[in-house]
Amino acid sequence: MKDFSRELNFKTSRSSGAGGQNVNKVETAVTVLWNVEASGFFNEDEKVLIHNKLKNRINAEGFLFLTVSESRTQLMNKNKAIEKITEIVNKALIVPKKRTATKPSKAQKQKRLDSKKKLSDKKENRRFKL
């Protein structure tokens, strides 16, 4: 887990929604911006992985952005934004392991055929015979 918080830029704005006078006069919402391409913490392969997995969050200039307005204070929102963007980037860096194709064993095939035969016999015995 890499800590790239020194590369983050922050913008503040007024939060939306209910909150009365506090919402109307205090800029508590925090938007965190991070330039993926200019990052010195990640190599090129990791940057490509981040771009591919988070392409819907990266704008045309190459900035990954996230807005947090959960708390009433700017500092708490800033800390939560750092936490969230770090978590998102670290999840994007996880490469799922390749699935190796396997074939069913002889015993599994035989068990399947036996159950099919058993069901077929049961249905055959239900028929009316003359």
Rank of each mutant, 00 (worst) to 15 (best):
D3S: 07
S5E: 02
E7R: 07
E7Q: 12
R14A: 03
S15Q: 04
A18Q: 15
G20N: 11
V23M: 04
K25V: 10
K25T: 15
V26E: 01
A29H: 01
T31S: 11
V36P: 00
V36C: 05
E37Q: 12
E37R: 10
A38S: 15
F41M: 06
F41N: 08
E44M: 09
K47T: 07
K47N: 06
V48P: 00
I50A: 00
N52F: 05
N52G: 11
K55A: 05
K55P: 00
N56H: 13
R57G: 01
I58Q: 03
A60Q: 13
E61C: 04
F63G: 01
S69P: 00
E70F: 09
R72Q: 12
T73S: 15
Q74G: 02
L75M: 11
L75R: 10
M76S: 08
N77P: 02
N77D: 07
K78N: 03
N79Q: 13
K80D: 05
A81I: 01
I82N: 07
E83D: 13
K84W: 03
I85Y: 01
V89T: 05
N90Q: 15
A92S: 10
L93Y: 03
P96E: 12
K98T: 11
T102D: 06
T102A: 12
K103N: 13
K106A: 14
R112V: 13
L113P: 02
D114Y: 06
K117V: 12
K118Y: 11
K118S: 15
S120G: 14
S120R: 14
K122R: 15
E124K: 15
N125F: 05
R126D: 09
R127L: 13
F128H: 14
L130M: 09
L130C: 08
L130N: 15
